[in-house]
Write a protein that binds this DNA or RNA. Sequence first.
DNA 1: AGATGTTCCTGGATGC
DNA 2: TGCATCCAGGAACATC
Length: 303
Amino acid sequence: MPELPEVEVVRRGLERWTSGRTAASAEVLHPRAVRRYAAGPADFAGRLAGRVMLAPRRRGKYLWIPLQDAGAAQEPSEALLAHLGMSGQLLVGEPGREREKHLRVRIVFTDGGHDLRFVDQRTFGHLMVCELVPDTFGVPGPAGQGLVPEPIVHIAADPLEEAFDPEAFFGALRRRKTGIKRALLDQSLISGVGNIYADEALWRAGLHWARPTETLTRAEAARVLEGAREVMGAALDVGGTSFDSLYVNVNGESGYFERSLDAYGRRDEPCRRCGTPIRRDVFMNRSSYSCPTCQPRPRRARY
DNA sequence: AGATGTTCCTGGATGC
DNA sequence: TGCATCCAGGAACATC
């Protein structure tokens, strides 16, 4: 299940394997993979052909590769945008290798080298070509760095970005009338935090998932942020989390972080701080794992 | 308008 | 053994 650290691992892999290379052609093997691209699969493929892939960028769980016309000097105005969803993979490898069962899109390059493949079993992920526009959540960076894909202008900065504003995040939390976990999963408040890392951040902060956001103190909000940063940083250090074979990095190697999780998936196992068995609640049609002792349910809960 | 519920998808695990 | 059902979850979209 790719969340921010896993997507960053993929981004780094692409930086090494596709930067500076020119796409020759693209083949869409399943239209659902480009469903968000209104102009359709043929136009999608046409937009990639002949364009140079620059260094990939990331915000939260979204990944994009700026596309430059060959020989052009101006800043790129379009990008190939990717979201891996539940089971998406971006794989780089020998062009002649066997086709994966769930291969959705294949891009080959003019140099005849490694191809780029989008493989996605559950097809929650997608690719599209889009415009790059000025960033409203982040701060302007070096030339061309202040641009983000138009379809994700509403996605907030993620906690590992310099542009992330903790005070603005705290203010947004206090204005909301909802539970802290729902807020953490809302990509317009903070991006890159999914179900797994939300539970981990709350365990580290000692807060229950149903804690009303409007009652959070600045210190509590800071603990949640710090927890998210720590757990995602640790996951990044070991190459991402993997619970099954669905997540692999760009070269097909799995991550090794799952053994380090403190809450997620540990139902009935002892809390690593106090020994109380971890409990599982169903919330938002998802599992939430927490320690009943370290993360007591608030008297007034919000969902 | 903000909060909350629904939906999309596949295949491994589980139950009878 | 075989078939049916459950479960995983990001985020757009629908509804209250």
